[in-house]
């Protein structure tokens, strides 16, 4: 393998990790509050609110139902507004976040739903405020499940980032398309695919190990 190719793959892996992790992080900054809002305003939630629940649920569903590649193109003007360009890794982060935040919100919501209603009731009976129930009971109780959700989110966002390679995004996806698809270099494409698989495996394995370590229900 020539040196240039190795350099190319190196920067591809770096860009992919950069896009994926930054997007996941920002998606969680938006997705956790959004997921919490949908969860607590539900008819069985601790702050029932039909209107807020409907609006937040609708936003999530609408964004989630748009296929990623279409969303990516549709928000190009917005992407240019935020990062000043529509190509490269930074430009890919914007659509990744937009697509991933509602997905993360649903993951968060389903993790929170797993928290035992009896435990929440006990916390209420002890005189907890609603904020305290969320921050001191629901989120800590859901922590292991939230972490499992995060590994799913990382893999999904990684997949999206590779797709973005088709329309000028950076990273391994762009390499696979430019070399493997346009120039028929099947070997390069296979190597990039192998790297993508390895990265997903790494995050999944790491996630499961951390969960096993922190989940106190498993002992």
């Amino acid at each position: 393998m020539d040196k240039a190719l190795i350099e190319l793959l190196k920067s591809g892996v770096y860009e992919t990790l950069y896009m994926t992790l930054i997007s996941t992080l920002i998606a969680y900054v938006i997705g956790i509050p959004l997921g919490v809002i949908v969860y607590v305003t539900d008819t069985k939630g601790i702050c029932k609110n039909r209107i807020v629940n409907f609006i937040s649920g609708a936003i999530i569903n609408i964004v989630r139902s748009v296929p990623f590649l279409i969303l990516l193109v549709a928000i190009l003007p917005f992407t240019r507004l935020v990062v000043g360009t529509t190509i490269g890794s930074d430009a890919t982060i914007v659509p990744l976040v937009v697509a991933a935040a509602p997905f993360v919100a649903r993951l968060v919501e389903s993790s929170l739903k797993e928290v035992d209603a009896g435990v929440i009731e006990a916390a209420k009976a002890m005189g907890s405020s609603k904020i305290q129930i969320i921050t001191k009971v629901i989120l800590p109780e859901a922590k292991p499940s939230l972490l499992i959700g995060a590994t799913i989110a990382v893999s999904t966002i990684l997949g999206y980032s590779a797709m973005a390679g088709f329309v000028g995004g950076g990273g391994l996806g762009a390499i696979a398309i430019n070399y493997g698809y346009y120039r028929y270099k099947t070997d390069v494409m296979l190597i990039t695919v192998a790297f993508l698989v390895l990265i997903v495996q790494f995050f999944q394995e790491a996630g499961i190990r951390i969960v096993n370590k922190i989940d106190k229900r498993l002992r």
Partner: peptide, 29 residues
């Protein structure tokens, strides 16, 4: 909330915080 601190409650299913130690459960209120 202040009254609830004067009224303790226990349940059939115990309803302990699964991610807190025994000590941290007791310390919560």
């Amino acid at each position: 909330r202040v009254f609830r601190r004067k009224i303790g409650m226990i349940f059939q299913q115990f309803n302990l915080f699964s991610q807190r130690t025994v000590l941290d459960n007791i310390v919560y209120p």
